[in-house]
Simulated scan of single mutants.
Amino acid sequence: MTHPTTRGGTRPFRFGVVAPIRTDLPTWRDRVRRIAASGYSTLLMPDVPRWQPAPGPTLAVAAGLADLRVGTWVYASALRQSFHTAWEAHSLSVLTEGRFEMGIGVGRPGIEDLGLPVVPPRERLAQVRDTITTLRDLDGPDLHTPVVMAVRGSKAQALAAEVADTVTFALMPGDDRAEITRLVRDFRPERDVELSQHVAVIGDNVAPFMAPPGTDPASLHAADSLAALPSDPAAAAEEIQRRREEIGFSYFVFGADFAETLAPVVAKLAGQ
């Protein structure tokens, strides 16, 4: 069936990879090229200060290495001033000739460890709105930088329904399939919005930068969590197809350590 969230009908599959720099640069560059050659749509960068280079320049380098889209997964609004985030996003769109996607959310755990004030959720959400509004102004009539919003609560969902091109739902460790299915089905934008799935666990392994410390793969599989997929490519492909049919997800994001394992899935499903 086609879920009503998709509005414009069933979307074709596409796949992204979160690929921070965790090795020497030549090894990372080779990985970027292999990801592109495997048919992945988008190379994504987390916004985690001090753990790796900043996402903006890193993505600009990645876009010059291979013909694929690049994006943030995701900018933490609490870390940045709205104008500077929008300016960087617009600049990346221009420099990549329209291949940049701005992922943005209200923040992440550990912000206080950076010496930054803890901003109330409503203010962080207002920052997200301001960032997107400024981005649209900078883009003008001839450029549209796609916006991906990470959401959970009703107010974030409402903003995403209004302004986002793609929506990914933040998953909690205890969420099972029924809970997330209900959450997504209650999201009813009046526009055609792409639904994305952040998959942090493949088989018994957890992707760096994509799950909180202490994530237990066995518990996620036992709970039938949507944050996990089987490691067998055939089983993973079957489950991904099920998630689009039953819930509406069509854009799936994996960690770079799983890119080669799941390359057969991408070869089979991308664009279908």
Rank of each mutant, 00 (worst) to 15 (best):
F169C: 07
L171Y: 10
E88Y: 02
V206T: 12
I21K: 02
V253T: 15
V94K: 01
A263F: 10
V167N: 07
G39I: 10
V147I: 15
P49N: 02
V184H: 04
V265S: 05
A66Q: 08
V167Y: 12
V201P: 13
D186T: 11
T166F: 02
V118Y: 07
G115W: 07
S91N: 07
F254P: 07
L116M: 13
D257G: 13
A78Y: 05
I180G: 06
A78K: 02
I111N: 02
P217D: 05
D192E: 14
A66N: 09
D142C: 01
A86C: 11
G248D: 08
I35V: 14
D113F: 10
L229V: 15
Y251F: 15
E101S: 14
L135D: 07
F252A: 03
V74L: 11
A234M: 01
E123Y: 13
H221C: 11
A36E: 14
P230S: 05
P208G: 05
E246P: 03
R14Y: 05
L143Q: 08
L59H: 00
A37K: 06
H3A: 08
V167S: 09
L125H: 07
L195R: 03
T23E: 14
W73G: 08
L195V: 04
R14E: 10
G64K: 04
W51T: 15
S225P: 01
W87R: 01
S154I: 10
T215Q: 10
V18A: 08
V128P: 15
A150C: 12
K155W: 06
E88H: 08
M1Y: 12
R182V: 12
A161E: 09
E88K: 03
A160S: 12
Y251L: 05
V118P: 05
L79F: 13
R108N: 07
A86D: 11
D142E: 14
P121C: 04
V119H: 00
L143K: 03
G103N: 02
R182T: 15
A36Q: 12
A236R: 04
F249E: 09
